[in-house]
Design a protein around this nucleic acid. Sequence first.
DNA 1: ATGCCTTTGTGAACGCGTGCACAAAGATTG
DNA 2: CAATCTTTGTGCACGCGTTCACAAAGGCAT
Lengths: 254, 254
Amino acid sequence: MATGRTHRPATRSRGIPEATVARLPLYLRALTALSERSVPTVSSEELAVAAGVNSAKLRKDFSYLGSYGTRGVGYDVEYLVYQISRELGLTQDWPVVIVGIGNLGAALANYGGFASRGFRVAALIDADPEMAGKPVAGIPVQHTDELERIISDNGVSIGVIATPAGGAQQVCERLVAAGVTSILNFAPTVLTVPDGVDVRKVDLSIELQILAFHEQRKAGEEAAAAEAGTPPPIRSTAASRKGPDGEVPAVMPA
Amino acid sequence: MATGRTHRPATRSRGIPEATVARLPLYLRALTALSERSVPTVSSEELAVAAGVNSAKLRKDFSYLGSYGTRGVGYDVEYLVYQISRELGLTQDWPVVIVGIGNLGAALANYGGFASRGFRVAALIDADPEMAGKPVAGIPVQHTDELERIISDNGVSIGVIATPAGGAQQVCERLVAAGVTSILNFAPTVLTVPDGVDVRKVDLSIELQILAFHEQRKAGEEAAAAEAGTPPPIRSTAASRKGPDGEVPAVMPA
DNA sequence: ATGCCTTTGTGAACGCGTGCACAAAGATTG
DNA sequence: CAATCTTTGTGCACGCGTTCACAAAGGCAT
């Protein structure tokens, strides 16, 4: 997961569990691929493999949407694509603004996955006057001063923050004040928002840290196994891989 | 969260719940900020606010690490920074390779959050021969042919995949074969890996789709409230905001 | 030393998510 | 039409994660 979430308590929405909602895009992607190959129907088992989940979970997820399958046959691919798209709100076009056009912002602007699925980059916004007018991904960057007008004129309700951590909260507040009610935050900060505003957080370094934790644990198990006489699984030549623990605490508590 | 995960069943590692592990980086970041302001101690309540969680959860999380607090006082900031860093395996230096130096790969290479916390970009790898030798973020890009040698020479165990979806699985297999056991995947594909290899997935478009779902639901509630006579909360001037539902299914099932 | 105040650490209850296992439903074949 | 086979949809049980609420522990003032 990438991810962190900030949701208000009222999680269940129209009976569809949050965990299921989070998997719908996964199913949708797998189904779209099948659709492009003109596959007419698919079983829960096949689709589950393609989406990387188990089939019981997938069936239960779909059961929240309704009974869209045919017993003994499977699911109609096209029909399911439509139903999930509608459920996710992708049958309409969502204008999105990206604030902070650094390396990451530019990468996001160029990312094809947005346009292809119901999202349209309505504007790129940056605080640097030097950037103003310069085109990124074919869209001219606009200055932060224009933020409120852009949101308003385009009826934008989803904003992406890709600024440095320092400016994120302020940008967030301006977005919300201008009418944005959903924010995707790439800045490594906790954003404070009023009720009714959704924030999802994507944090690259957090994901890496979680991997490091598991990696360390694996190394620890290897070491323990080796100590117990069991030879560790053959690992590539590793230059100076430290074992876990073994350092001295930097500071002790009073 | 940003977020998809692919974990093997053996979730609990040394008694620390997975959910807790995922929050440790959050606490670490908040604590580091306090440390930089030379704050000596912090209460669970204060730290919880800074990290964006509730205090009971935070205390329970810390209880899995040990009893590092002092009742009536709080937690020693420096000591806790060290303990969490050690638990996450950040007291050692993790060499990381980034494969696929497009917009996103370049953004990742330039991202300061890596180097600052125990990670070191050991190499940038791309399949395009044109890229070879060209420096990105001060590091010369190397060709995919070198992949196995780079992994081996540097003892790399963590790899980041930022290639297009098409090539991701193949890159993944080569990384794993060369000794990588943890992968952070930005490509919009399900990666298949052998047991013992951890994969975390970050998918930008999935996060947006989840936001769209909630956004649509909000619009639906507004409409419902309006219908019921309750005036909807005043929303900014919105040009042509479609209501939920109201379209015709594209295809009906047999 | 004693009593009060603050804050941690955790037992217990609850709710959500997952996975099993099977009955119901439809297709298919003879 | 009956028998069989396939695949869905779901009731149920279990385990993880969250939250409450409070006893235990330490600091501090008198």
